[in-house]
Design a protein around this nucleic acid. Structure first.
Lengths: 194, 194
DNA sequence: TTTTCATGTTAGTTCCTACTAACATTAGTA
DNA sequence: TACTAATGTTAGTAGGAACTAACATGAAAA
């Protein structure tokens, strides 16, 4: 039997390099070197480069437990949004290498897309539901779906900025930004009566 | 003399393909075909692939006129932020191919970074100044720099979402989101007195 | 018409990359 | 000890990519 350890080393090296440079720019020799094995071993385990890419993708894709999150909510806009945003940021961070791999991916594969959009789309559904409930309760006035999309896409902006641009010019602490941002958003959508 | 037309065709094809697939994944043959010229012509004009990449980058980099924008402001949070956000979105959109090229770029070149960060960094400085003034006027309470970063990074989220993810799951109209979002943000930071 | 110059065409070189085959080595297990 | 299974090593193939050289074409300017 093949040792799991070797496969793991190779998969770790793969995802690291693919996320840094993109699929085409990384060579199998490079991956082998990074993994500390010889190139042949890589092919013995994964047959070819593309299969390795897919296996790395599968292995490192992180799916959060949405239900648990949305069951612990308190129907207090600011508190809930902070929880949701943190958990969204956490999921994005856990998937950061996958996301970079995806962004650098050259051929736009529909299957790939579907996989990548599974969690933001799931998040959006639940957030949509949350905002609908809050609207029913009279806490907000805006359109729930627009809010859900706004909140998720802007949160993504905070994440991707800290991921790819944090070395330069934006020395501001992104964590502080997130908290401040969520507070502003919560205040901005709160219905204060006429 | 070389005809400008040919160089333009090649540069157009380059930026298109580089932004779609990234530097390494695109071949010079492919670019030539897309441009409707033969491969030799490409080398005659640009010497080598990397030089072509740089020339395409230079040519399609769009620098907005910040001053003009910030001089037309009315010191009304919502109106001004809508103007600023629209102009930021516009600049991002004009640079969309450059931005995709940058995201897909394999080697993290510091010079490249500096060029890419010139405009968000310039935008941030001016926005920072704007929020400081608004704070002095008593219109807002929050920290200007945090606000500037929040606003720009979240705006970037709206942009990048519509750029790379708009085919799927996020059918919501991004333009509507932007407007709604800016209104929320403006309301969220407005100081309403004690 | 002749000249000039950008472009097309063809053939080829060099280098790199994915991937293979065959054999050697090493370590755990019977 | 002997066997087995994973890995290392070496050499090599096939194809593709960047890039070059030499010559052909075709259109505009002289």
């Amino acid at each position: 039997m093949y040792s799991l350890n070797t496969e793991e080393k190779i998969l770790n090296a793969s995802i690291l390099l693919f996320s840094q440079k993109g699929y085409t720019a990384v060579t199998t020799k490079e991956i082998a070197k990074e993994a500390g094995v010889c190139e042949m071993t890589l092919f013995r385990h994964f047959e070819n480069k593309h299969n390795l890419f897919e296996k790395a993708f599968e292995k490192f894709m992180f799916f959060p437990k949405f239900r648990a999150l949305f069951e612990g909510l308190e129907w207090d806009l600011e508190k809930d949004l902070i929880k949701i945003c943190s958990s969204y940021q956490h999921m994005l961070y856990k998937n950061r290498k996958i996301i970079l791999m995806y962004l650098k991916n050259e051929d736009q594969n529909p299957d790939f897309d579907v996989t990548m959009f599974r969690f933001p789309s799931e998040f959006k559904k639940l957030l949509n539901y949350y905002f609908e409930e809050m609207k029913n309760k009279g806490a907000i006035l805006e359109n729930p779906e627009t809010l859900a999309t706004s909140f998720l896409t802007t949160s993504f902006g905070l994440f991707i900025t800290s991921l790819v641009m944090n070395k330069l010019t934006f020395e501001t602490d992104i964590q502080a930004c997130i908290l401040s941002y969520v507070r502003i958003f919560a205040k901005g959508i709160t219905y204060v009566g006429s």
